[in-house]
């Protein structure tokens, strides 16, 4: 069944896409083979869909599962999507399921004919612009890293190569990150690809360590821009519609955030002392604003 998800729009406290840019999310739930896997993959896919709903319009989130998740349907969907995408737009593809690598070709398992490395490469290449994102949680998914390598493409795989064939845990932890405060390392209420990856990678390591087992999967992240690519929001704060002063302060805070981001990008141009001084001044402003918002909210 193909599902178009509808969720309410939420304040974006930090905007990664340009004002007109759109985010297109495609979630493909592959074959589970066993009921436990089916259930896990479905839960993970649903969670991703829900997280994505805070970032983009519902009609730009597409979820393939069951009999609909065929190669033909997927390729048609991506063909249509690439045709309507602008160069500023970004695509996020989530492949949640099993995969296999025969030493030459990687395949992601879906009903009917599997999608292959070449299919995925052609889809990614078809998108206009750059910094598109692909997550593949299957075993052997690391086999995609080399053929899809491109520094302007963000790839996250559950394994580091095609030889890690055991069913993976990475996807479960990656999805957990989408709603975890622990994963929000910069405390901006957004979860970036980099944050989700770091969280999941650490969890995978800890899992194998706690079991006293050698790790059978080593997740990989390649490509630029993973820190700036937001894939979920937590503790969302809506712009106040009731108190104009609070709304004004929230807007001011967003502006300060942009100034901090700009300052951080110019860090190497400044002495450490100047940088810290300017950063401190901006954050103090933000802190005072937040304090006032809290006070007004309490009133």
């Amino acid at each position: 069944m193909r599902i178009i998800l509808v969720f309410s729009a939420i304040l974006m406290s930090s905007v990664s896409l340009s004002a007109q840019a759109e985010l297109y999310v495609t979630i493909v739930q592959g074959l589970g083979g066993e009921p436990t896997f089916e259930e896990n993959f479905h839960t993970q896919s649903q969670t991703i869909a829900e997280a994505s709903a805070s970032l983009t319009d519902a009609d730009k989130i597409t979820f393939f599962n069951g009999d609909d998740a065929t190669r033909e349907n997927l390729l048609r969907h991506f063909s249509t999507q690439s045709a309507i995408m602008d160069v500023d737009d970004r695509a996020a593809i989530y492949l949640i399921g099993h995969g296999g690598f025969d030493g030459e070709e990687y395949k992601f398992n879906i009903p009917g004919i599997d999608i292959t490395t070449d299919d995925i490469l052609n889809v990614m290449d078809s998108f206009p612009g750059q910094n598109h994102f692909l997550l593949n949680t299957s075993s052997t998914s690391g086999a995609l890293l080399e053929p899809l390598a491109n520094e302007n493409r963000i790839l996250v795989t559950a394994t580091r190569n095609g030889n890690e064939k055991n069913a993976t845990f990475f996807g479960e932890y990656f999805v957990e990150a989408l709603s975890s405060e622990d994963a929000d390392l910069n405390k901006n209420n957004n979860i970036s690809i980099e944050e989700a990856f770091g969280f999941a990678q650490r969890q995978v390591e800890e899992y194998f360590e706690s079991q006293g087992q050698l790790a059978t999967e080593h997740p990989e992240l390649t490509g630029n821009g993973a820190a700036q690519f937001t894939i979920a929001r937590i503790n969302q704060v809506a712009i106040s519609t009731e108190n104009p002063r609070i709304a004004e302060l929230q807007e001011q805070n967003l502006e300060i955030d942009r100034q901090i981001e700009s300052l951080q990008l110019r860090r190497t141009e400044l002495s450490n002392e100047d940088y810290i001084e300017q950063l401190q001044a901006l954050i103090l402003q933000s802190a005072r604003i937040n304090e006032e918002i809290d006070q007004l909210t309490r009133e």
Binding site: S13, Q280, L284, A287, N290
Partner: peptide
Amino acid sequence: LMTALDIAPQFRPAQQLLL
């Protein structure tokens, strides 16, 4: 504190400590 806030400018408890 500034190291913390450099990583996470909107980290509210850290902002409070800065104040």
